[in-house]
Nucleic acid binder design. Sequence first.
DNA 1: TGGAATGATGTTTTT
DNA 2: CATCATTCCA
Length: 690
Amino acid sequence: MKERISTIIGDKESANIWMGTFHSVFARVLRTESDRINYPKNFTIYDTQDSRSVIKDVISELNLDDKVYKPASVQARISGAKNNLISPEEYRRSPDLTNEDIQAQRPMMADIYAAYNRKCYRAGAMDFDDLLFKTNELLRDFPDVLHYYQHKFQFILVDEYQDTNFSQYLIIKQLAALRENICVVGDDAQSIYAFRGANIQNILNFRRDYPEFAMYKLEQNYRSTKTIVNAANSIISKNKDQIKKTVWTDNEKGDYITLQRSLSDNDEGRYVANDIFETRMTRQAAFKDFAILYRTNAQSRSFEEALRKLNMPYRIYGGQSFYQRKEIKDLLAYFRLSANHNDDESLKRIINYPARGIGKTTVEKLIIASAKFDVPIWEVIQQPNTYPSELPSATMRKVMDFCTMIKSFTSQIETHNAFDLGQHIAQSSGLLKELHTDKTPEGVARYDNIQEILNGMKEFSDDVDPDNPEAVRTMTDFMIDIALLTDADKDDGDNDKISMMTVHAAKGLEFNYVYIVGLEENLFPSQMALHSREELEEERRLFYVALTRAKQRAVLSYAITRYRWGQLSQCEPSRFIEEIDQEYINVAAMVLPKQEPARSWNNERSNFFKGATSTAPRGNKPLTRLNTATQDDNQEVEEIAEGMEVEHARFGKGKVLKVEGKLPNTKATVYFPSAGQKELLVKFAKLKVL
DNA sequence: TGGAATGATGTTTTT
DNA sequence: CATCATTCCA
């Protein structure tokens, strides 16, 4: 969007536009105005993990049972309240909410909410929902601030308006109140965020709030072929809740939608990879023209494997984002704590990582004292006389040393650039050394990730701020809102890659060739969404979004067996497949090249296949039987012997040094040049004899 | 205190 | 199946 606007109005002008997600734009506002709401300028933003950890602490401090008060659902409940601008006090006073909680046997919810907020405040931290909640408070309680931003933002455009929640709605309403120069774009058929409080009512309110509105219906689709547009229409017409409209296109009819049935999740991966490979050749397409869309992040694995085997570049969006990886969060925790000593979550994370002799008993004592006196852990350490924690003096010394180190980082924040300080912290905290000693492939990857973020800081530091070319680009600048960054913000230069992401993440994007995979009951639509018509209709809209990402060709795919929760389960094709007008669909005969000898099928699995194929469901065209190299699945334990050369899926080639233990639990000691010596249980290790 | 061994548990979807 | 949490022992 930024690029498109730049090409129209030029880089200079477009640089002045505030553009971003609600969270990032208003995090920026809050940083500027933090003193108004009694937050430190460099407040920390707690991501979902951080905030769940705080909730866990609250639950245990209130002596509640985390089987009853499940942290995840408590978190969802608090989030829901915040998105509707309900404070803990209002929550407590609301008969409806209180009754719901009593019904659900969770009467203490309001207390958890209050304690959670208190803890976040004490830590100088905001969670994602706070960014919007506090913005609302700021604009509500400080007329001069409101006035300032009303003049600053004279024109407001909100895209994907159907996905805004009440909190966001009210921010916009306040800001637009003065001039009413506001334009919103939305499509009720693409509303897919009801689960996080998005409210379609906001679109309807618009007419009421701005009676002089003008409405433009955008019913012509410029993106997709007739086949895709019509198929999508046929899907969405199954929904009861919808604003009627007729989407049409002038584009040509185009390809049929392909329906592909696979025998397993792995076959599905291989099929899609092969199809991309072929399409790329026959249509002269680039990798970046392809997208694989799935319902849940966990589904990416089989596609990754298949694409890797064919040497095709891909990029996964979302999921475990780079910034959420453990090693990255560890390093960032040093940064965060250096910037904000009250950030208890970061402190707990790193006070003994890398290990420096501060064990859990010690941390436990500190936490108890911090709760008792209602002050951040840092204060407990700094003022042992005011807040006695009863640590033995030797331990106290270690804890003090840790704080001294952090303080030395703090003192350099404003004077050093982000990279220099980042490098220094990574080194003198011992983090780099700790990761460097880990020679497992995962360990090496972690070390590389740290290097990568340091590189990013280097780039950032060398970059000149056009507004202020003299200024040192500090760590504070770098750290701003890093919790809000997603993988989509990362750019590694080579962008000709196949995209893989959830359907949610794909909204607003488009690709020539789209594969919608895992179209199975209980997966898409999700098992969680089968309880009510409303939920199912949201899943259907999600499918609509997926299908309309495609410009030229869409491939729908499902597998009849799939590993879920580590178990093989049978799957039924998704109801959405049948809901498409069948005239647009072409059922593919599965064609896969002969497999290279398989390395990994075990007996249980291949037997299951034999049973499953005979009961092929429904009237699909006959399938070319997949040749899944069953010849190799009798690879029994006795085949592994000392001296053999073997290959492991992850560690690569290696030599068997020793075999011990009796049959099904035979253990082999294998030396891998790339990964060192490993002890592996033969029945799990899937070793391939070379 | 710290590491290894064992056991529980969880999967929607995102900022 | 992975990851985390808990437990156990040096």
